[in-house]
Design a binder for these strands. Structure first.
Lengths: 142, 142
DNA sequence: TTCGTAATTGCGAATAATTGCAACTACATT
DNA sequence: AATGTAGTTGCAATTATTCGCAATTACGAA
């Protein structure tokens, strides 16, 4: 079973209705190259290639729902830029420079320890698939 | 020297001008109880107690500048809620439940390791004073 | 297959946040 | 103390996101 069907099955299991709009949005999200992330606006554009009959508000609402259900990651790339990707996408850590805005992808392996600690100490299941950390990149340090 | 003067001195050193607006915004931010964080809107209200002559756009721009200079932390509490605090505020980690929105403060000590790793591996200086992690809290797991 | 209904959508309006630009001002220089 | 100017602000316009509500529709049950 591919990512798309897997997400749809999960939603059905939770009594969500699978509308054409939702399916198109999920396809747009899943049909990207590895390491690719899309903004809400980009997703809307991709969906409109197939049909112009999907409202931008529906895109926002569907993304919120998918994030809340843990099927999609909301990735903050510095205030003004917010992107989305399915959680099947592979673990990522984004190092965002708060000075130049540059985004560096880092190995997220180290966060496993943090995740384990948070669960044992607080019973909190942290989303560590896509994490953004802010700071200053090598270039901007001088 | 207190937090406020320290921030102002740092800004002067970087050739930023200390306008009445900026001073009021910095005071509003620094004059809070430990563990308190303010939204841009709350900061604006606090400043307006002293004078109505500060535009909300100035508050946003000043906060952006302070964050970019590393003097203030921008703390994301779940998409719609963004709060600010001076970095002198003490290390924090916010565990934000993506289902119920509840925010739990956790010990941030463990992130020190992550910070060291990121610097040695990527020369990236991560802001670990105020971190938000998203996930599912104990209550919402069932 | 049809029906009933609660979930979902689209639309327009409301709200939040950002930006361009002309006017203003902090402060270094004289 | 007066001056020049680059940095900063206020305002209005723009853009991004959310919300209320009536119309529509997915899908379980008959």
């Amino acid at each position: 079973m591919n990512d798309i069907d897997q997400i749809i099955e999960t939603l059905r299991g939770k009594q969500f209705r699978i509308t054409p709009q939702r399916e198109l949005i999920i396809r747009a999200l899943a049909d990207v190259d590895e390491d690719d992330h899309l903004t809400a606006e980009e997703i809307h554009k991709r969906v409109q290639v197939h049909t112009s009959a999907v409202n931008i508000a529906t895109v926002y609402r569907t993304l919120d729902m998918l994030v809340e259900e843990g099927l999609v990651s909301r990735i903050d790339l510095g205030g003004d830029k917010e992107v989305f990707a399915t959680v099947h996408h592979g673990m990522h850590m984004h190092l965002v420079c708060r000075q130049c805005g540059h985004v560096l992808d880092a190995d997220a392996q180290i966060l496993r320890d943090v995740g384990q600690y948070l669960f044992s100490e607080y019973e909190f299941v942290a989303d560590l698939e896509h994490i953004s950390l802010f700071g200053i990149c090598a270039n901007c340090q001088q």
